[in-house]
Every structure is written in C-alpha cells, then in structure tokens.
C-alpha cells in the first residue's frame, strides 16, 4: 500500500539519522523501504528554540527549499511560520517560499498557542495563498505549558474561527480521545497520526468520530519510526479502503498531489 507521510523533518540536527539537506538519498531510501512514496517537509522547527526571529525562520525555510528543489518528485514543503512576527513578516515569508514550486502548506509549532490573536496573520496567509495549516497540537492536561502548546481545544478554536481554512491538528496520540472529540463536526479540520507511541484504539475512535476521510498518516520522522506508525494503521480493523485513505488518498487530495 502506497504511503504519503504528511509529517516529516528530513533536516533535523538533533538526531543522527537525518541531518543535512545533502543526506536526502538516505532519507528517500529509508522512506521507500516503508512504501513511503512522498514526504511533506515541515522544517527543523525547533532549531532556534520556540520563538525564532525572521532571520532564523528564513534559515529553517531555506533548508526546506533546498530539499524541495533537490527532489521535487519526493518532497513537498510547508512554510514554517512564527505568527508572533506579525502580518507583514508572515505574508512575506510565505510568499518568498512559494516562489519555489512544491510548497503547499503552512507549518506552525510552539511559538504561540493556536488561540492567540496573532493567528489571524496565519489565517490571512492561508486564505491569500490557499494553503492548509498544520498546527502542532498536544493535550495540555499533563503538559502545563498552554502559552506554547496548543491544546486540541485551541486548534479546534482556530479551525472554528476560520472555516474557510483547512487545518491539520497534528499528533493523534498527543491530543488523545478528548482531542478527537474536539475535532468532531468541523469539516475543515483534519488530524494527523504522527507523534507519541502507537496507543491502541485511538485510530479507530478517530475514524468513528471524525471519519477516515479526515485522518492523515504522519510519522514525525526522525523522532518516530515509519514501520511502527504505518503498522499501527495496517493493524487496525478499519476497512482496506479507509486504510488507503489515511495512508495515501486523503493527503493526495488535500494537497492536490499528482503522484505517478
């Protein structure tokens, strides 16, 4: 079964598998061993800490540009943004990255909570350039850092405030059962399966409540293992059609990827 991985960090200096844009052949070989035919590159988002300035943001996005330019057949880029830098910087950096073909989305990490007023700049960029927004999300029930971490309540609020923007709530295991229910009933909100250990029954629960057509496979490599994160989906009792949607079809449709 072919796989599109919507949550990857091929340039990630904290771990020794990946590292530099020049290591792409290793990354592609790794992906292909697991039937991953395409990866969405989200950038080395914590390279300069939680709140990068504009120069730091450009350096991170420049690495993504290098990756996408080198192998556009295998990599699609998301523009990494820091909403706290304001509207002008947000729009300018998005426009700069989009000059490279192969950028199809926006990535947000932990500069701010998704309920922060600065998120309106991101919503504007998403609307202006017709891009989905992938927001790092994690339950703050046990992680008490609501300033930076977006609880599923916050990511759902961003989606509710901006119904014309497609939003991807990252990290199914991180948001948990409560997070799935926050996403329920929001047609513009998707969940990716990346992050955390492969806890059982969450995926079936998500498919039951938000529909398999709103779930996207993501690994979070190199932090996680493709074999394990794909096996978690293959091993469920979901239908073969639903597994195909989660592993490939939904991402291809959402990002309008024409993969041969």
């Amino acid at each position: 079964m072919r796989v599109i991985d919507i949550h990857t960090h091929p340039v990630f200096r904290g771990l020794n598998l990946f590292g530099r844009p020049t290591d792409l052949n290793r990354v592609i070989a790794h992906g292909r061993r697991h039937n991953v035919v395409h990866m969405i590159v989200l950038g080395d988002v914590l390279l300069f800490g939680v709140n990068p300035n504009i120069e730091q943001l450009r350096k991170i996005n420049n690495d993504t540009i290098k990756v996408v330019k080198a192998r556009p057949d295998y990599f699609t880029g998301f523009v990494y943004l820091n909403p706290l830098l304001g509207e002008r910087a947000t729009l300018a950096e998005t426009e700069r990255c989009l000059k490279t073909p192969g950028f199809r989305g926006i990535k947000l990490e932990v500069a701010n909570n998704a309920a922060h007023p600065a998120m309106r700049h991101v919503a504007k960029a998403a609307r202006t350039f017709n891009l989905p927004v992938l927001q790092h999300s994690w339950s703050t029930t046990n992680i008490k850092d609501r300033k930076h971490q977006s609880d599923p309540v916050d990511t759902a609020l961003f989606a509710r405030r901006n119904p014309e923007v497609k939003v991807i709530m990252a990290h199914l295991t991180g948001i948990g059962f409560r997070g799935v229910l926050e996403a329920k009933g929001l047609p513009n909100l998707y969940i990716d399966t990346s992050g955390g250990y492969p806890e059982e029954y969450l995926l079936e629960f998500a498919a039951e409540h938000i529909g398999a057509d709103h779930i996207l496979y993501g690994s979070d490599v190199p932090i996680r293992e493709n074999s394990c994160t794909i096996g978690r989906i293959i091993g469920t009792k979901l239908s073969a059609a639903d597994k195909h949607r989660i592993l490939f079809g939904n991402a291809a449709r959402l990002l309008n990827l024409k993969l041969t």
Binding site: P198, E199, E200, S227, C228, G231, G235
Partner: peptide, 18 residues
Amino acid sequence: CTPLLSTRGQADKLRCAH
C-alpha cells in the same frame, strides 16, 4: 505492550528493521 500499544506496529518495528 499489547493491548495498550499497537501489536502490529510494534512487530513491524522489528520485522522492517534495517
């Protein structure tokens, strides 16, 4: 760690290991 974690995912971690 069945049934708390995915049996298939964990088995594939070994089966597909390089």
